[in-house]
Simulated assay, not measured.
Amino acid sequence: MEIADLRREYLKGGLHRDELPNDPMDLFEKWLRQACDAKLPDPTAMSVATVDANGQPFQRMVLLKHYDANGFVFYTNLGSRKAQQIKQNNHVSLLFPWHTLERQVHITGVAEQLSPLDVVKYFHSRPKDSQIAAWVSQQSSRISARSMLESKFMEIKAKFANGEIPVPSFWGGYRIRFDSIEFWQGGAHRLHDRFLYQREGSLWHIDRLAP
């Protein structure tokens, strides 16, 4: 198979300067709603990129759980590799890869840990099995077999069978306070449309970028 020969045209439509709102969150909300309406698999999935102490970048997919003018929120194990890297360097980037719609949204900003109140509120809104799973996995740690996770899951499930599951002390979340958002729309002949919003005080400056 010659992967160098795999290509296609991007013909779903362009993005024009006069279509852009002053606030990038208005366009993000519109695009996210369209991704959900199109029934894309995991429309809220986003790649979170962090950097370790040696400057080595890492990426992983997480699920967006809330967004507003204050930022983008996700939850994780606070002992995970991403959490440890954020502790050392809280500058991160996010990427929403809506390939079917020929769109991407790239975000840069800084991560701040959520308050215990926010964490408790969200944790207890999760399905019970998801709450149990948060107790089971020491995320990013090495394990010898899947059976260890399954055994631990059943143990924790039995332990909390008759009561409320408390929030693990090692589980929490982050809000990414953003300072730039780039919207990418595929275009014919590889002439893609890219617009970059950058924060300037209380306003946003918009630039068109070459594809």
Rank of each mutant, 00 (worst) to 15 (best):
G109I: 14
V48R: 12
L32C: 05
G55A: 11
D207W: 01
R177E: 00
S202D: 09
R7F: 15
G201E: 02
K39N: 13
T44E: 15
R81E: 06
G109F: 09
Y174P: 10
L32I: 13
Q85L: 07
H205P: 09
E112M: 02
E29G: 05
V92Y: 03
M148Q: 10
T100C: 13
R208F: 13
W184F: 07
N162R: 08
H192G: 11
H205M: 04
V119Y: 00
Q84T: 04
V48N: 12
I156M: 06
L209Q: 04
V62S: 07
F178N: 01
D37A: 10
F170G: 04
P43I: 08
I132F: 05
I181K: 11
Q113E: 13
S130M: 15
A49L: 07
Q85Y: 12
K65E: 15
K87R: 06
S147V: 03
D179F: 06
Q85N: 12
F123W: 07
I156D: 01
L6K: 04
V119T: 00
D42Q: 14
C36W: 03
L209E: 08
S93D: 05
R126N: 03
F72E: 01
P168C: 01
L196Q: 10
G13W: 12
D5Y: 02
P166I: 03
T108V: 10
T50E: 10
K30D: 03
N77K: 01
M46G: 04
A49H: 03
L6V: 14
W184R: 10
Q34D: 15
F123T: 06
G187R: 08
A4G: 12
I107N: 00
H124F: 08
I181F: 07
V119K: 02
K152M: 15
E182A: 13
S137D: 01
N90T: 13
P127R: 04
I181G: 10
P127F: 08
L32P: 05
Q113L: 09
L64C: 14
E200G: 08
Y10N: 09
W98N: 08
D118A: 15
P127Y: 12
L149P: 04
G172I: 04
P127C: 13
S80L: 07
V167M: 03
A145M: 05
W31T: 10
D42H: 08
R175A: 02
L64A: 14
V167E: 01
F160N: 00
P97G: 12
E2Q: 11
Q198M: 14
H192E: 00
W98T: 13
K30T: 11
A158S: 07
H91W: 13
R175M: 02
W98A: 05
A134W: 08
H192T: 05
L203V: 01
P116L: 14
S169I: 06
D129Q: 10
P21E: 02
Q88Y: 02
V51H: 01
Y174E: 09
M61L: 15
R190L: 11
